[in-house]
């Protein structure tokens, strides 16, 4: 059975290591915060100027001056820090944020990502996505393997305008966990429970690399 959004978030949470500073994008990436294993301490960064995002507030705690990058009201965990947008992106570009988790419309077999613009449709802007993918050493993409109309989102080359080149290393989809290898191609690391290698192959337009037995995702 393919993973649902929660399943994707739970699998990504397994990649998180103690002491990491992490930026979570909007959508499935935000859910990852709910499944960080016990005993693992991390700090979540919000690019509008907060390190130490806490849970959503109670009715009494709501503060219009405290939001995340998705413009949702949040709280601060003990030990938080507040700063300007320039400082925030300095820490992102400067390589101080260890892990970025974000969504995508397409990823290519060389690790290019397209996530901000569909020509002919209303363009809302790239926000902070281009800065995040240009800088992070470690980026995980959370997305569906295929688009709503059944097209593969793991391609030889992106068809949509690029957000960043050669920057994606790992992808977790509803069907599989994949690694983008330096020589080009999606190496199949794990498959969703009950999903066959053939199904994944069929859903992947780019080069799929399968070596030996591919274990199932454990969540």
């Amino acid at each position: 059975m393919a993973l649902d959004k929660t399943g994707i978030a739970k699998r990504i949470a397994q990649e998180i290591k103690n002491g990491m500073y992490i930026n979570l994008g909007i959508g499935i990436p935000t859910l990852v915060a709910n499944y960080i294993p016990d005993g693992i301490e991390v700090v979540l960064q919000s690019e509008n100027g907060l390190l130490g995002i806490g849970p959503f507030p109670t009715e009494e705690e709501v503060d219009a001056d405290l939001i995340n990058a998705g413009k949702q009201t949040v709280t601060m965990r003990p030990g938080s820090a507040l700063f300007s947008s320039a400082e925030s992106f300095a820490m992102i570009r400067g390589g101080h944020v260890h892990l970025t988790i974000l969504g995508a419309m397409e990823v290519s077999e060389t690790g290019d990502i397209a996530s901000w613009k569909i020509p002919g449709k209303m363009v809302k802007g790239m926000g902070g996505a281009m800065d995040l993918v240009a800088s992070a050493e470690n980026i995980i993409v959370a997305m569906q393997h295929r688009s709503r109309n059944g097209q593969s989102k793991l391609l030889k080359e992106c068809s949509l305008p690029i957000t960043g080149l050669n920057c994606i290393k790992k992808i977790v989809t509803d069907l599989a966990v994949l690694e983008v290898v330096p020589e080009g191609g999606f190496k199949l690391l794990e498959r969703a429970p009950g999903v066959s290698v053939e199904e994944i192959m069929e859903a992947t337009e780019g080069k799929l690399i399968v070596e030996g037995d591919v274990k199932e995702v454990q969540i």
């Binding site: 947008s85 320039a86 992106f89 790239m126």
Partner: peptide, 13 residues
Amino acid sequence: DLVPQGTLAERIR
């Protein structure tokens, strides 16, 4: 004119 957020912040800085 759409500008990446970090670039916008740094251009203003």
